[in-house]
């Protein structure tokens, strides 16, 4: 029976943090705590006594966090920066996914691996979800432009909806632009003229 490992995820982004918590549930022997607020981090970490800390690589407060971790280390707290030269590809994968990991000195590799693998996978899936959401939002905004431009053409030139749309499409094709760009241009021009 192995001892339970305590993983602390420092992430102001709750959704992403819970994806990691969720992902680790299929393994036994891990306890996960999410810290969303970096204020008073040194004290929190001292009381939480984590074995593994995961933090977003892009977090602007990460340099301060490093100072805290090295201070804990000097106070003989069991937190050391992850140094595992034997598994460069795993660390590179983590960095490319945007994660940095800090691990207790001398921890067995087979216990770290599933944690990192899960975190990497969850960071990637979070990125994908975010990308999808952004694309959907942009598409909706574009549709709004096209609808408004259609309405304007129908009124100004007395066209049917279908005629208005084919006019936009033809213009877009002639100019090698996207329909939504033409629509947006028309709306901007109209705003200036009317």
């Amino acid at each position: 029976m192995t001892e339970t490992l305590h993983i602390v995820v420092i992430d102001p982004n709750k959704d992403r943090a819970f994806l990691i918590v969720d992902g680790l549930q299929e393994y036994s022997g891990y306890k996960v705590t999410v810290v969303g607020e970096t204020h008073g981090l040194a004290r929190k970490l001292l009381s939480l006594k984590p074995d593994i800390i995961l933090i977003d690589l892009e977090d602007p407060s990460r340099d301060s966090f490093e100072q805290i971790v090295s201070a804990l280390n000097a106070a003989k707290q069991p937190v050391a920066m992850f140094v595992d030269h034997s598994d460069q590809s795993m660390m590179r994968a983590a960095i490319e996914a945007g994660i940095s990991a800090y691990v207790v000195d001398g921890m067995r590799k087979d216990r770290i691996k599933p944690v990192l693998e899960t975190a990497i996978a969850r960071f990637h899936s979070f990125q994908r979800v975010k990308k999808e959401l952004e694309t959907t939002k942009a598409a909706l905004a574009e549709r709004k432009h096209v609808d408004r431009a259609k309405g304007m053409l129908m009124k100004a030139r007395n066209l049917t909806e279908e005629e208005a749309y084919s006019l936009l499409r033809k213009t877009a094709m002639d100019q090698g632009r996207r329909v939504s760009e033409v629509a947006e241009g028309l709306l901007t021009a109209a705003k200036l003229l009317l």
């Binding site: 690589l57 892009e58 990460r62 340099d63 490093e66 960095i95 940095s100």
Partner: peptide, 10 residues
């Protein structure tokens, strides 16, 4: 990059 640690690690 948003922090120096990230420059170093990358």
């Amino acid at each position: 990059e948003h922090n120096w640690s990230s420059v170093r690690d990358k």
